[in-house]
Design a protein around this nucleic acid. Structure first.
Lengths: 331, 331
DNA sequence: TCTATTTGTTGGAGCGCTCTAAGGCTGTAG
DNA sequence: CTACAGCCTTAGAGCGCTCCAACAAATAGA
């Protein structure tokens, strides 16, 4: 396992180490003859440059640090997917760890990532105090995903939850619905903007709002619906897809049919929503795009193309499937 | 962003750089007085060691490389989650990239990972030829997850698909089923052992097998069921959860009820299966455990505790929910 | 008291690479 | 034949750290 170094390649090719370095970096100022000789020697020895030594010597890094609060969650996995795609395009590698939604563990994770002197750092929905984020931002460019911040030194990428819910409400109104309830996500991470969006959209249409406390789970959705059956609205806007699916199954158990009796809209466009068995009308968050934009924001700073912070607020989009239809019962 | 180095800390604390190094590595052979002075200086300067320089100098690495064929897939995300947990416990960091299920891209990803001279490499369901894997294994310990191999130099972690399906069949037989069909995953990655497991289990019970070609999607499951309705079995064992959900919805559309008319078992125990709306009886693969075992296999080799390859074949377990019941129709 | 140990500390070489400045070649012009 | 551009190529310092050998100081044994 003692791997060959540049000196070995240089010796074999009969040139100096510096020349090998130039070839490895693809410099144009090397004659074709030498370049061929070096590449041949490298090939024969199975040589490949040592990324860490390279990074140390050049005082530059081609590594982006990523802290995920929870990879278990498909949302973050897709964001990382997007980050990875852009990073790979530009010859960057990802170094990754998780914070487990605990400030202490996140702080440790942050320290570990910074010890690699990454070119940039992407924090996905971190829970550490802003002060820690600010401190990290003194060392390297930082982008926050699914968490906003007023720090002038960090970029952010978020989804416009208010607008997303407005999309859902507008869709239902255009179908003819007037009695539209919102199953609220409570303390959940993006529940507040979604609730605000619902209230604003209802007001804009001159309709009376009806917010029902619930949570981001299918059980929560089902429970909320059970408290609704004596005065059933014609449409429901759930705080997320799981909640919507729970609501639907409770409705069906109570003898109602979706979308005939009640229309239901979810939020997130998880893979669940796309199942033909479910076929849920929902609001799509461009998760992969979150990752791409986050990576691009970092790379812009790395290249020195930008200094002022950027705040991406991505437009969600409505995906209409089979759980929404014009109301049949009196509106 | 010019970060302090060991020399800065040494100067401030009035000691040598070597002493700072000892303190940073937690060596016991440093007097309390000096240690305190060094830590104080480090704190004041906001110093933290440079992981790459450290790795270069010590010729050891605390990095594990991970190649994921597709992070988009929740299966791999959970495996990575498990890897990360064990790595973090032992002070290792993960460096990660994706291969996108293309041999060329995987080969590039592999090269990039190896350039960091990682302590070990975990390949999750890679598609590159065995030869490439063998070559990587010459450079660093390698563990394969969800792919088997006869290479004597690599460890493997897999799920025992034969046994998993047998669990499902046994469960159905114990409920009284005799006419049990299998919706087959075709070319899918673990389809073959699952099919074998089905055939073996049916034979063991002296029952006639019935394999129906299908695929790992809900649409595939629905289609397969439609070709089955003229001679409906009393139970179906699907190749995975998505397929099972598709089968269920097609059965319901055809006027049958699950589990009254037909019992259905899935495979994978995805989050989908746990939804109360679905509540699918299914076979659980310990995905997180895959990651943990993979990391441990690597660490054992890193520590030189083991040389012979290890082959983990994890036992899947049955999760009984609401889609299976004793047959009502004549068996 | 003097020589052995032990304990704590240090200088310096070196990990594998990049990068600058300076050197060697060629070819063309004077 | 010398001069002077190029264009290639190279020596060597240094990135931030670890580790070894050497050494100073403190302790122990005789």
């Amino acid at each position: 396992m003692a791997r060959p170094t540049m000196d070995d390649v240089a010796a074999r090719a009969g040139v100096s180490r510096a020349l090998v370095s130039l070839v490895m970096r693809g410099s144009p100022k090397v004659s074709d003859r030498r370049r061929a000789a070096v590449l041949k020697a490298a090939e024969e020895l199975g040589y490949s440059p040592h990324a860490m030594a390279r990074s140390l010597a050049s005082r530059t890094s081609h590594v982006l640090g990523v802290m995920v609060s929870d990879l278990h969650n498909a949302f973050f996995a897709e964001v990382v997917d997007g980050l990875d795609a852009v990073a790979a395009e530009h010859g960057f590698d990802l170094i990754l760890n998780t914070g487990g939604r605990s400030p202490a563990r996140e702080r440790r994770a942050l320290r570990s990532l910074l010890s690699f002197r990454p070119a940039g750092l992407a924090l996905l929905s971190p829970v550490v105090p802003t002060a820690d984020i600010g401190r990290a931002a003194e060392q390297t460019p930082v982008v926050l995903v699914a968490r906003s911040s007023r720090l002038a030194t960090v970029d952010t990428v978020n989804d416009d939850g208010e607008r997303g819910i407005a999309l859902a409400v507008d869709h239902l109104v255009s179908l003819g619905h007037k009695r539209i309830a919102h199953l609220d996500g409570g303390e959940g991470s993006q529940a507040a903007p979604r609730r605000r969006g619902y209230l604003a959209a209802m007001a804009a249409h001159g309709l009376a709002p009806r917010v029902v406390g619930s949570e981001y789970t299918d059980v929560g959705g089902a429970r909320a619906v059970r408290g609704l059956t004596d005065d059933l609205p014609t449409a429901i806007v759930s705080c997320n897809d799981f909640n919507a699916v729970g609501a639907i199954s409770a409705l069906e158990e109570a003898g109602f049919r979706v979308p005939r009796d009640v229309s239901v809209v979810g939020y997130d466009n998880t893979s669940l929503a796309a199942l033909r068995h479910v076929s849920l009308t929902t609001v799509d968050q461009p998760r992969n795009e979150f990752g791409r934009l986050a990576a691009e924001a970092l790379l812009q700073r790395v290249r020195g193309e930008r200094v002022e912070p950027v705040r991406h607020l991505l437009h969600p989009s409505l995906v209409v499937r089979s759980t929404t239809a014009p109301p049949v019962r009196p509106a």
